[in-house]
Amino acid sequence: MAPSNDHPGEQAAQQPIKLIGVRETPLSVDEVFRAVGDDAAGGTALFVGTVRNHDGGADVDALGYSCHPSAEAEMRRIAEKVVADFPVRALAAVHRVGDLRVGDLAVVVAVSCPHRGEAFEACRRLIDDLKHEVPIWKHQKFSDGTEEWVGAC
């Protein structure tokens, strides 16, 4: 039997954006995963971005994120575009600012949809657009004493 798109569970939820935030405190994968739980979702895609110990061939010693006051509103704008393009049941995105250490969570996003393919595509679009469009900047300090801003205009 072919699946029917007439069932309400195959459609986007009425209020699918469950959690959007920019935080100075550690992020929780569990919080984001719980936020996107939905009985009609057959697929949930989760992306976790962590601070790595290198970039561009150089060892990273320290890293800090800062943001424009509009960052959270821009995250919501991007989330709204994703839910307009996919049958999203629930969506959540949080980004950390402040000083982070190697291994810390920098960003956690998740999307649940009726099917796995939609969830993967929606989550990929969400993280890619957040990275390219939200005014959050990374300041890296390298072990050789140099430093670099990433994402700053």
Rank of each mutant, 00 (worst) to 15 (best):
D104C: 03
L105T: 10
A58K: 15
K81T: 13
G98S: 08
A110S: 12
F120N: 11
V88F: 02
V102A: 04
D55A: 11
V97M: 10
H54D: 05
R116E: 04
V60D: 02
S112L: 10
A71P: 06
D144K: 00
R116C: 08
G64P: 00
L126W: 13
A152Q: 12
P114V: 11
I136H: 10
V97E: 07
K131F: 09
E80L: 09
A58D: 06
R101Q: 15
E118M: 14
L130K: 00
T146L: 00
H115K: 09
P87S: 07
D144Q: 01
E147T: 11
R96H: 10
L63N: 01
A84N: 08
W137Q: 05
G56R: 01
S143A: 14
E80I: 03
V107T: 12
R76H: 11
D104M: 04
H115Q: 12
L91N: 09
W149K: 07
Y65Q: 01
F142Y: 14
H132A: 15
R89C: 02
I127P: 09
V83T: 15
R96N: 08
G98K: 06
H68F: 04
H115W: 06
A152G: 00
A84Y: 04
G57F: 05
F86D: 03
R124N: 15
D128H: 11
D85A: 15
D85K: 13
E74K: 11
V88I: 07
A92T: 02
P114E: 12
S70R: 08
R101W: 01
A92C: 02
C67M: 01
A152D: 05
A58M: 07
